[in-house]
Design a binder for these strands. Structure first.
Lengths: 337, 337
DNA sequence: ATGAAAGCGCTAACAT
DNA sequence: ATGTTAGCGCTTTCAT
């Protein structure tokens, strides 16, 4: 049987209140009593039961984290930020993965609520307004993270996608590219960040007075990017385009692999830029030039935001925007050289 | 204020016991009362407080998971297995990362114990006997996972590293390679799985009646593998070796990248084999031939093992060995063709 | 400074 | 079948 506060009290010859006071340093205790209590705790190897504790305090110092798939590398990086900074603020992490299941998001939200988590971070990849309404209704502090969709008004931490895409376009143009293609997504452009990224592309091409070449693909995987290679191959070989700006690192990497397998030299025959800076980006060859989404920081800032709310500090703006950086590597050729 | 079992009882006009009975289906309840209770639960949006529940039942259906770094891809895969199968068995996951800190392993173990987790899965990369002793002393069901070290006797799920290495060597030899090098680790060979992997290499080379070429490097990162390229470059160019068996995918990938950057064709100039099958392995070019460590399954089987223990089912063998597979891709050349 | 006692929300005897 | 009650391990009034 686990040792309880009673055992400590008995052994120390004091009341359980006194024991409670010394472990919480909540009220003054005589040095004499404190000494005895500490001794008893030591000898018995006593550790307060956090469950009992949070039942009475109604606080849990647990943050519920619902992600799409912890096996996904950017998700793991965000969770790393949540976890590491969370522990600095003394929060523990209760983790659930939904694997894109809409119902699971709501089910896990309920579950976490039942577990009395102090706050929730929901990292989603789908469009799901209900879960946000539910979260608001449950009036639990939360942060909603979604790489793709702009869902409702909700507290979130993200980057400015328009500015990020502009950065890419400016760089490509600086490198002398004129025939630049953009690879976007087929679905829900109006609802997703693609809306802003695409706008940045269009604005840039207009300024450049060049025709737009827009490809749409369905999905964010390396495999999809690879398959996409077949579609774009001709346009590359005929020099209709000299640079491809992919909405996703995965797609860019798939495309690079397709080029490698089909003897199209990157960046000599075609320049490729990604978006995200997932970890593989620097390991494939050529190394991928891309926009760095600060995943770790997104996680870190999310916890910090929640921590502030939980401590009733001054409420922040709902949306926090983090700076982005263009990571210049080897997948873009400077045509002026 | 959250709605409690009392509110439901009052609203339904029954006692709290009756409410408890219907939500737990623990004892028969008249259809009439059940109906009223369910109605009240619905109307109030009541959800039982899991904290209160586990305080009295002394069960928590939470599994504490301590990992080295959730940002590491194989770790994320194991956690994915734990998480997904865990939820099937109705367990939630409380996650902590140690980042290789020995003290953190023990601190988090204590923390999880205080949180009354039902069991612990410890995924470590260091040698730390104390934490195992502590886990045993705390008499909590646990599984100890360590990719590198063979630490003490402890319940674990792993692969047979000798057999896995043998598989690689057999394949390399089948492909006509004779001058095969093995890249192992500098540190703690006797304490780690390298002991068995190296033995398999030696046995194979002896059978082949070929001299052994063993390199030692310190670390498991892609960067280390890249740096190692400089050391081995001459031996490749002089054809002293035609194939390199790396103890780690990361090292193999680093080496492949070094070769790419220095115009050494893989696999034409040198064949390279990895170990682990991390996700990047199939995305780099050439695709890496490697041993697949079934990370997801290791996580999945670990939970299943714990679940059995927690349900007092027949105790299993302490060590579970999972099958390995050689994934043949493009980084090995068949010399006979 | 300390102890007694109430009570957090719930389950599980124990009664009826 | 249902209600009453004790108590899980703890914090926190409220007395003293």
């Amino acid at each position: 049987m686990a040792v309880t506060i009673k055992d400590v009290a008995r052994k120390a010859g004091v009341s359980i209140s006194t024991v409670s006071r010394v472990i919480n340093e909540s009220k003054p205790v005589s040095p004499e009593a404190r000494r005895k209590v500490i001794k008893a705790i030591d000898e018995l190897g006593y550790r307060p039961n956090e469950i009992a504790r949070s039942l009475v305090t109604k606080k849990s110092n647990v943050i519920g984290v619902i992600v799409d798939d912890i096996g996904s590398s950017y998700v793991a990086q965000i969770v790393r930020g949540i976890e590491e900074v969370g522990h600095m603020y003394n929060y523990d992490i209760l983790l659930c993965s939904t694997y894109g299941d809409k119902e699971a998001e709501e089910r896990f939200t309920q579950l976490l609520l039942q577990k009395q988590v102090a706050a929730i971070i929901l990292l989603s990849e789908i469009y799901n307004e209900e879960v946000i309404s539910y979260l608001k209704y449950a009036s639990i502090p939360f942060v909603y993270l979604n790489k793709y969709y702009n869902v409702l008004e909700s507290p979130t931490v993200r980057i400015n996608n328009y500015l990020a895409s502009k950065k890419v376009m400016d760089y490509l143009i600086k490198c002398g590219h004129k025939n630049i293609a953009y690879v976007t997504q087929e679905k829900d452009i109006e609802l997703t960040v693609e809306k802003h990224k695409l706008q940045a592309y269009k604005d840039s091409m207009n300024e450049l007075k060049q025709p737009q070449t827009i490809y749409k693909i369905d999905g964010h995987t390396i495999t999809k990017g690879y398959e996409f290679g077949k579609k774009i191959e001709k346009d590359i070989r005929t020099n209709k385009i000299t640079a491809v700006f992919c909405c996703d690192d995965e797609i860019a990497i798939g495309l690079i692999n397709y080029c490698y397998d089909n003897d199209i030299k990157v960046p000599d025959a075609v320049s490729i830029v990604g978006y995200g800076n997932i970890s593989i980006a620097s390991y494939i060859r050529p190394k991928l030039t891309t926009i760095m989404e600060p995943y770790y920081d997104i996680g870190a800032v999310s916890v910090r935001k929640l921590s502030k709310i939980l401590n009733n500090e001054k409420p922040e703006e709902e949306t926090i925007e983090l700076p982005v950086q263009l990571i210049v590597r080897d997948s873009v050729k400077d045509l002026d050289i």
